[in-house]
Design a protein around this nucleic acid. Structure first.
Length: 298
DNA sequence: GTCCATGTTCTTTA
DNA sequence: CTAAAGAACATGGA
């Protein structure tokens, strides 16, 4: 569900509700969504003020007034919403935070009346691939993360890609190489840049790399403007669906005519994921596998 | 019943 | 060592 544009949309919509608010109470309905297992999230959060909600790759970073921070990952079906505390709970809601406003930290214990609760932040995730992550000492939000696609230069992208011979699609999905792309936007960006998904990442020349850099950034920006893509589950913090799914050119369009050349869009499986491309616009790289077939001695 | 799903991580295989 | 393929996680929709 969530790639960079969806996560960014959640961060933007959530920030309006929670920036500067105090966490009065923590309701955790499932302990196993928290990593490391057994961490005491309630005592970490209760009575603390939310200073900033931001994004790194697909992670939602929350900073508290104490300097402590943690992150939320939405996995495939995770939702982070801001709702009235008396709104009905969706099934699979695993965590709720009661937030109170105001310039001071009054009423920050269990005696806070429900009427003082400005809103509840809720984490709902049916498949539970997402979760709440508390960093280990010394860990930073950048650990294990490649560059931010919206801030990288074409040279940086070339550098990232020069270090692996894997298919470009596979490299784009690797968060330690570049942070934020997922299956939808990797396919859309490769189509826009006219690069075949099986092309070896280190064999792409500077010109197509520059095209890819521009395509990635243009698509991500447009998707953020459209509030992300809602295929099934995604909602922003206000419960609104995204609109970018209507602008997908190849993702989910197997067998449809290519919007550019009318050849049917193909779907293959690469790195275990559905991969969509136009065989007319995205030319297949020359086969690099050995011609000789080696026979094992028997 | 089958297949598929916006993600990540671990294991197996080559 | 590299990396590709497969499985696992858990739930629901078509």
């Amino acid at each position: 569900m969530p790639e960079l544009p969806e996560v960014q949309t959640v961060v933007q919509t959530l920030s309006r509700h929670v920036g500067g608010m105090w966490i009065a109470r923590v309701h955790c309905h499932r302990r196993d969504i928290i990593t490391p297992a057994g961490a005491d999230l309630a005592s970490l959060l209760t009575g603390r003020r939310i200073q900033l909600v931001s994004r790194r790759g697909k992670r939602i970073i929350v900073r508290l007034d104490t300097g402590q921070w943690f992150w939320i990952h939405l996995g495939m079906t995770g939702r982070l919403t801001a709702e009235p505390a008396d709104a009905p709970l969706r099934p699979h809601t695993h965590l709720c935070l009661d937030l109170v406003g105001g310039p001071d930290g009054t009423n920050l214990d269990i005696s806070t009346p429900i009427s003082a609760v400005a809103c509840q932040v809720r984490f709902c995730d049916p498949r539970r691939f997402g979760g709440i992550f508390i960093p280990t000492p010394g860990q930073t939000p950048d650990d294990g993360m490649g560059p931010e696609p919206l801030e990288m230069t074409a040279d940086q992208l070339a550098q990232c890609m020069s270090r692996t011979s894997r298919p470009i699609k596979s490299a784009l999905l690797d968060q330690s190489i570049i942070a934020g792309l997922g299956n939808i936007y990797a396919d859309e960006a490769l189509f826009a840049a006219r690069i075949h998904p099986l092309t070896s990442a280190c064999k792409i020349t500077p010109e197509p790399i520059a095209r890819l850099c521009e395509s990635i950034q243009k698509i991500l920006r447009n998707a953020i403007t459209a509030g992300g893509s809602t295929l099934r589950d995604f909602l922003d913090a206000d419960g609104h669906r995204g609109r970018f799914q209507d602008l997908h050119k190849v993702y989910g369009h197997a067998a449809d005519p290519c919007p550019t050349c009318t050849k049917p869009i193909r779907r293959i499986v690469l790195a275990g994921r559905s991969t969509h491309f136009c065989p007319g616009c995205q030319i297949q790289p020359r086969r690099t596998n050995a011609r000789k077939i080696r026979r094992k001695s028997t």
